[in-house]
Design a binder for these strands. Structure first.
Lengths: 260, 260
DNA sequence: AACGCATGTTGCAGATGACGCAACAACAGT
DNA sequence: ACTGTTGTTGCGTCATCTGCAACATGCGTT
């Protein structure tokens, strides 16, 4: 809506892929160098962008600090954390907590596996929406209409042979997940990694977050992991109770629909 | 420099302190609501801001993802990480890695202590510049002039009785740190927590990052922690060698001084 | 119910401020 | 010394951002 801001913000994802000099930035934006310079200076003043000794620009510390505050201010996270720790304590596996936002799902907390094998994931990293167990739970909770629209918008990368191939089968999967109240990912993202997940619900009964237990084949079989499902569900329910209690400020879902 | 962008970015720290509605944002910026709306919409399109079901705005997932990419793209981090793990393995204490950027110092990696007592710190959180051991190392390396200017700009909060009280004593401390090549923080931030740190140097010999070992009094005495200093220094030197090798692209420090 | 109140949203005319140009400066390499 | 590359500045023009005023919507009160 605002051209200037739009351009300025366009610089950020650009720099996220690595440092760039003024020329590159200007070129990528399709603007004159002087314009790019002005925008970069403004971003710099706010600390979102940092100028390296070699004159190139990269994302700045303030951005990282902001993001940090952002995740920490999510109250589900604080409530769930001790439960995640306990779950890790009892099972030894990697525990994740994720929330949805628009079409994206991101991890907002993680407790590492006790086993030497580490998974490739990070707090703040967007989740593979079409295959991850937590993502299925979060999307399955959307109202029918929105669920279909979202499914249509998504890409369906074939990470492995068992990845969700297209919107149709994704919607079918979501229906199942919705009905059973839990989800799995059996090698859909990385061949040898399995995952079981359960939803955290808010005071209004809607799914506010999802937690999962992940482990590679080499540590436990899919069946053994599934045997832990009841524990995961109980934990998620415990978090739900606490979260719903802590959040009466949801109240009357306000306007039925965001106007326009 | 660019008014519009300036205002838009001013919204971010505002929202970092918690969700806010349109009115509040407009008021804080000192602009008309319609203006604030336009800015928020632009931020929203880029995913930096998210609109909650209750219509209020908070920081968005894309921001978090960007920050994530930002820290991961720092090459010191990747090189140092295995060394940090090893250091934690051998000592059991919390290990930090930090870099400086302008007047701020932030943690970019951390390995949690094996002991039950956890420290209050987080990747991405700005470090207490005037007391933290890693901050001292990073600032001590600045050229005299800049060091003095920086010291004058900083605030000197009295976290504890042993916190650095003012610029003068901070500069004295920096001189010591510079001479000895390592730094400590003995209860300067939190009464019962001690900390020893060593610098990671780039190909040009300048301090590029700093790593530290922290532990509360109840686990080890300050002396016992100091006994681990040689190990920390050796580790930092190992990282330095690897980092300097991996970074020939520093090359000729380019322009003597950033123009203007 | 009807009312006011608070909050969010839209279209518009006017003026501010952002845009690109062109010229300059500072280096690096040949 | 010359040439090419990259960053920086001042400025006139015109796009674009701004604030206003009116409308929309929901909430609580009388």
């Amino acid at each position: 809506m605002s051209q200037t801001v739009d351009r300025a913000l366009g610089i950020l994802p650009l720099l996220a892929r690595g440092p760039a000099d003024l020329g590159r930035v200007a070129e990528s934006l399709g603007v004159h160098k002087s314009t790019a310079l002005r925008l970069l200076r403004t971003l710099h003043e706010h600390g979102l962008v940092y100028r390296q000794p070699d004159q190139r620009y990269r994302l700045g510390a303030r951005l990282i600090a902001l993001a940090q505050e952002a995740v920490e201010s999510l109250d589900v996270r604080g409530i769930a954390h001790p439960h995640l720790l306990a779950l890790n304590e009892r099972t030894g596996h990697t525990v994740h907590l994720a929330v949805r936002e628009e079409d994206e799902v991101i991890y907002i907390d993680k407790v590492e596996s006790r086993y030497p094998v580490r998974m490739y994931s990070r707090i703040g990293r967007p989740v593979a929406t079409t295959v991850a167990a937590v993502a299925k739970l979060l999307l399955a909770d959307l109202p029918e209409e929105e669920r279909r629209a979202t499914a249509a918008r998504l890409d369906y990368p074939r990470y492995t042979a068992r990845s969700t191939p297209d919107a149709a089968s994704f919607l079918r999967e979501l229906a199942t997940v919705r009905a059973q109240g839990w989800a799995t990912d059996l090698g859909g993202h990385e061949e040898s990694i399995n995952c079981v997940a359960a939803p955290v619900r808010g005071a209004d009964g809607r799914v506010a977050a999802a937690m999962s237990l992940s482990a590679p084949n080499v540590v436990v079989t899919a069946e053994d992991l599934l045997a832990l499902l009841p524990l995961v569900r109980r934990t998620a329910e415990a978090v739900s109770r606490e979260y719903a209690g802590h959040t009466p400020r949801q109240g009357s879902a306000s306007r039925k629909d965001a106007p326009r």
